[in-house]
Design a protein around this nucleic acid. Structure first.
Length: 283
DNA sequence: AAACAAACCTGTGCGC
DNA sequence: TGCGCACAGGTTTGTT
């Protein structure tokens, strides 16, 4: 479910609400969620620690603690982090609960990790040993909303290999954070077909792609992400995003292309993922 | 090197 | 209304 814009929205929510607060108590209700280590490791690693920051790397959330450790959370398909008043009734599939002490601004609260499909993960790791304990963080590609992601960098990433463009955008080792919704939206804005071979892109196409990646992701963050009809994705306050109303191809199969007004949006399965595009204005 | 399928799970929406 | 099936935002692993 959540891609870079949704994870960034969650990160901002955490930054505004839980940074600086102490974790007083932790409950782990589902072993699978902490499968990397163990329930005891997560309880012991979090209890008594103060959250120092809320960071994002691609689709991963990382919160450094004041203990030399950090907690990594990946929401995968159906994970949510929700903030609630202490003692609130928990929704089904609440697998981890962190009890947060009161701060000057906020009363005592609970931070819930809710995840029906249980693909999501919570890992407490030692910052100094991140390479061995959370190796995937070190393998992530460049984050596309940072200043380092300039046109020259993208050009090198695209022209240096022969990958179909959609597969390239989805590869977290190349660019970190783009998933199925935003790859379709980005390629549509860049007017590129999903099956274009990366090394075949011309200079102007690289420029269009660079602009499209940044614009789509930044606009989606501005809108608080995309919440599809199953409302799986919400921010830490339980609020839905609104970028789904700005989608131009995702979920619009059979409908008129909003950009060229003449083509019809097509949906087909590519590499196991549903792919939407306009065959008329994407080449 | 790159493409593909399967695996991990549960919930929802659709057709009949 | 109920049932069964296809499908879903991600990532890793193993095979072609």
């Amino acid at each position: 479910m959540p891609e870079l814009p949704e994870v960034e929205t969650v990160r901002r929510g955490l930054e505004a609400t839980v940074v600086g607060r102490r974790i007083e108590r932790v409950e782990v209700g589902r072993e699978r969620t902490v499968r990397r280590t163990s329930p005891a490791a997560v309880v012991e690693g979090l209890t008594g620690a103060t959250i120092v920051a809320a960071e994002r790397r691609g689709k991963y959330l990382v919160c450094p603690l004041d203990t030399g450790r950090a907690v990594m959370v990946h929401l995968r398909m159906s994970g949510q982090l929700l903030l609630a008043p202490a003692g609130s009734a928990r929704p089904a599939h609440t697998h981890v609960v962190a009890h947060l002490g009161a701060s000057l601004e906020r009363a005592a609260e609970e931070l819930w990790f809710v995840d029906p499909r249980t693909f999501g993960e919570v890992v407490v790791f030692e910052t100094a040993r991140a390479d061995e304990q959370v190796p995937e963080l070190g393998r992530l590609g460049i984050d596309p909303i940072t200043d380092r992601f300039d046109r020259a960098t993208l050009r090198r990433l695209v022209l240096g290999r022969r990958r179909r463009m959609k597969a390239l955008l989805l590869d977290q080792h190349v660019i970190a954070g783009i998933g199925n919704i935003y790859s379709d939206e980005i390629l549509h804005r860049a007017r590129l077909r999903h099956d274009r071979v990366s090394a075949s892109l011309h200079g102007r196409e690289v420029t269009r792609l660079h602009v499209a990646i940044r614009e789509v992701l930044l606009e989606a963050i501005e809108a608080g992400g995309s919440t599809l009809r199953d409302t799986q994705y919400v921010d830490v306050m339980g609020v839905s995003g609104s970028y789904q109303h700005a989608h131009r191809v995702y979920g619009r199969a059979g409908q008129r292309c909003l950009t060229c007004a003449r083509g019809t949006v097509v949906s087909e399965t590519v590499g196991g993922r549903t792919t939407h595009y306009c065959p008329r204005c994407q080449r």
